[in-house]
Design a protein around this nucleic acid. Structure first.
Lengths: 213, 213
DNA sequence: TAGGATGTCTAGCGCTGCTAGGATTGCGTC
DNA sequence: GACGCAATCCTAGCAGCGCTAGACATCCTA
């Protein structure tokens, strides 16, 4: 009875992940308004009620996608930052695929290189995965941020911003909050066309010179 | 036939405004998810199809509320800026109600006083009218921003940010974009609890010192 | 006063998120 | 090896959504 229930639990976990993946793919290809419980059930080849045996509702599914997104974002930012601090000395087990926003080698000598790399990586993440970013920051989710039970991935991303500032800076947290706010604002305002999307590089340059100084 | 059709057009315009006002009030008291076409029709004491004789759809109603919001925001920012530049010399026809975020008199001598006043006014606007702000920046609307037919109120608000920087600054536009982005990011991230809402004042202080310098 | 245009409402379509209740499957026990 | 039970899954349906076709009433014009 043990082995059997173990197998079932394994299958259940697999299906749980399948739902999350299907929701994300559907959102990335057709937008979140196309992600309905019926279409999602169709895609995972189960009936609608199965979704509700895994999640409390649609918002919980979006939250699960968003949570995975925060994990990816933290990873993305961390790689960019490490690649910009000490090239070749990264503690990563293997090379893996370097983020597209990796800074050029000569920039690594500048003190604000990690900051620049993280900013570019953040905006790159937002523009390349708009649906995922939307789930993380715009759609209503069940995720709680400020409290004790905040999931680790949510903190990890923010910590990457904090790590861009020297440890002796006793207002790192504040600086990271403002930096994050500015980047998020730039991401969503340019995505919706409220500021010209072309000027993103110029804006982030200006932001870095002012924040880092 | 002229007087009659004029009266009808007047009534129609009045009802048009009534719908917008009702939608806004309903959203501000119960949130946008409570604004359904049925409830809205109930509130204006007409049937549903009447709404569609005034607007192309629900999004268009939200857009109308948002557009009014942009007008109010521009006005709000302008008052704050003028009150901070030259107290008593404002070209306003009358005193009217001064915005709550008006700076203290002694701040008016500082060069970045208008900037500070506008920033505070902006964040005050966002926190005091969350539903309106949501319609303007988060909900899907029909409004177009970057093009030639962009409604004037949408430009007016942005221009207030530009006016915070000296005319000889040839990168005012860029600075305004970054400033706006940062404020918008702070507004939405603190509203959703992603950054602590309490630290807003500290953050805006830091932002101003870095942006103005 | 009849005709016609204008304006409004009733009723309903296809969709949404979500759920109750029954059918089916497969394990554990006698 | 057959049976009872429990877990699993699906069919069918609810209330509500945005939106609209077509009937009805109302009012101005001739």
């Amino acid at each position: 009875m043990s082995a059997i229930s173990e197998r079932r639990e394994r299958e259940r976990a697999h299906r749980h992940q399948l739902i999350i993946t299907a929701a994300r793919e559907l959102a990335e290809s057709e937008g979140w308004e196309a992600v309905t419980t019926r279409r999602l059930a169709d895609r995972v080849e189960y009936s609608q009620p199965v979704l509700y045996s895994h999640f409390d509702g649609k918002d919980a599914i979006v939250s699960a996608v968003a949570l995975a997104g925060f994990g990816e974002l933290a990873d993305h930012l961390r790689r960019a930052r490490l690649a910009a601090t000490e090239p070749g000395e990264a503690t990563e087990p293997e090379e893996a695929t370097k983020p597209q926003e990796a800074t050029k080698p000569e920039e690594a000598t500048e003190p604000e290189a990690p900051l620049r790399a993280v900013c570019r990586a953040y905006l790159g993440f937002a523009t390349e995965r708009p649906a995922l970013y939307q789930a993380m920051f715009i759609l209503p989710t069940d995720l709680t941020f400020g409290s004790a039970e905040t999931p680790p991935p949510l903190r990890a991303g923010f910590d990457e911003f904090v790590s861009c500032f020297p440890p002796e800076n006793d207002r790192r947290g504040l600086h990271a909050e403002v930096l994050w706010s500015a980047l998020h604002g730039m991401a969503v305002l340019s995505e919706s066309g409220r500021i010209p999307p072309d000027g993103q590089a110029e804006r982030v340059d200006f932001l870095i010179t002012r924040i880092a100084g």
